[in-house]
Nucleic acid binder design. Sequence first.
DNA 1: GCAAATGTACATGTTACGCGTACACCACAT
DNA 2: ATGTGGTGTACGCGTAACATGTACATTTGC
Lengths: 124, 124
Amino acid sequence: MMILNRLTTLRKAKRWSLQYTADRLGIAKSTYAGYESGHRRPSLETINLLASLYDTSTDYILGRIDHPAKDITTESQVMELTDLPNMKLAVDGISLSEEETIQFVAFIRAKREVELNRDKQNET
Amino acid sequence: MMILNRLTTLRKAKRWSLQYTADRLGIAKSTYAGYESGHRRPSLETINLLASLYDTSTDYILGRIDHPAKDITTESQVMELTDLPNMKLAVDGISLSEEETIQFVAFIRAKREVELNRDKQNET
DNA sequence: GCAAATGTACATGTTACGCGTACACCACAT
DNA sequence: ATGTGGTGTACGCGTAACATGTACATTTGC
C-alpha cells in the first residue's frame, strides 16, 4: 500500500476543504476524497499538482522520503508558517508537531482578528 | 503531456535493456516499453521503483525538477525557535513580530505542560 | 549469414479511475 | 425547533487506459 495518507495532513495544514482542494485540482470532490481515504489514487498530473499546491515534493507525497522540505536553503528569508511542512521548528529541543503549528497559526489569526476589531472600534 | 522521456536516458545511462529493466520492475517488457514511448504510464509503485533503480527522485522523473540529484532532501534542518532572534516567520504573509514569536513559544510550553499533567493523571 | 537479443507495435480483457449522487453531520441563522 | 449552507463519507456505474501476450522489425555477436 502506497503512503498517500499524508494528503490529509497536508490539506489540513493549509486549512483547505475537500471541495476547495478538488477545485484547485480541477477534479470532483468525491475524486479527491477517494485519494485521502485510500480508495482511489491520483494520476501523475494530479500528484504533480498536489506537490505544488502543498509546497512539497512528489517524493514526500509518495512516501519515498520522510521530510516534506522543499529546499529550505533556497527559500526566501521569510518562512511562511502555513507552509509548515517545509520546515522543522523546535521549542526547547522538541520538534513541533504539525498539530502544534496548526494550533499556533490559529492562535495568531485569532489574535490578529481581535486587534483588527479593536482598531475598528477606535476609529472615529 | 507529462515528461517521462527521461526514462530512456536514465535507462541507457545504466546500460540496461528493456527486458532487464522490466524484470527489475516486475512487469512485462512491452509494458515498460510503453512508458518510454509515451503510450502508457507507470503506476505510482512503478514510479517509485524507477526512481530507486535509477537513483534519482520521482520529482525528476515527473519533470518537476531538472536536476536528477538523488538527495533532494536537505536533511532535516531543525531550527530552535528560541535561538532565532532574527528568524523571519510569517502567517498569511504577515511576518511575526518578536512578541508573537515569544507568545508562540509560551503557547507551546503551556500546551505541553497541560499534556504532561494530563498524562500523569492517567497513570495508575 | 544466422541466431539471439533487443526494440517496436498492436488487439484484447480487465482494472480501477472519475464522476454524480445521496446521506450524515455540524455550525449558524431564522 | 426548523431551515440552510458547508463539510466529509460512501457507493454504483460507465469508461478510459493499463498490463499483457504476441508478432514483427532491428540490432548485435559469432
